[in-house]
Amino acid sequence: MNTPTRTSVKVAYSLAGGALLILAAQLIGQFGLAGRAWPPVMDVVSYVTTPAGASLLWRNTLVTFSSAAQGFLLGAVIAVLGAALALVVPIIRPGMDRFAAILHAVPTIALAPLLITTVGREDAPAVIAALSVGFVMFVTMASGFANTSSAHQDLFTVIGANRTRRLARLELPRAVPAFFDGLTLSAPAAILGATIGEWFGAPMGLGLVIVSAMQNYQMALLWAAAMAATIMSLLAYLVFIQLQRVAMRRFT
């Protein structure tokens, strides 16, 4: 009885808060409180609704989305395989942990020259996205694999499970919630990685649009592109957090 009313109050607060924020952003722009660089929200919206603006944003959003999605898939697959390998072959585990920590600490921008030489300007965004995703996924999967309860491990020992069956029937299903945790965390990382890659001379993409709009002082376009990237990231986050809730219900 109590909980639904409380959640609905929370949602109402959040909606009101969101509306308030938009209004504040509009007013700051309208009265020029933050200078010329902060346009009124309505200007940005009206730019997005022009056919030229819409088509420019849409095409570049698609490019960034496809780089981010490719990198997301690649990074997630490699990280899960790596974490599973480290689980099955424990001797390589310390080295891989250390390597993943270093990889995480590498500022992705530092990898850009390396990647442009190796994979080229077109594919660099996807690869940087894959690296950003890969670290997060590796760490969450490694800890997901590590936290199997000792009672379950004992059970599989006494019923005589071999390594593959233990992996398939205990460790993999047990790590499913961690897997979705990792996806939720790394979805924004994929989009960030893709846009960083695009700063280094990719032919298209939101990252490129943002930099060129900044340099050419096209404020409506800059804000619109930034919003497109944000909305993409937000949607990915919201989708994965739902999946993660389902996984939590199903696997625990």
Binding site: S149, A151, H152, D154, L155, V158, I159, G160, R169, L170, P173, V176, R250, F251, T252
Partner: peptide, 14 residues
């Protein structure tokens, strides 16, 4: 050929 039941039931939750 061994059967064990623990104090923690150790059932697979999924």
């Amino acid at each position: 050929r061994l059967g064990v039941a623990f104090q923690e039931h150790a059932l697979l939750p999924w």
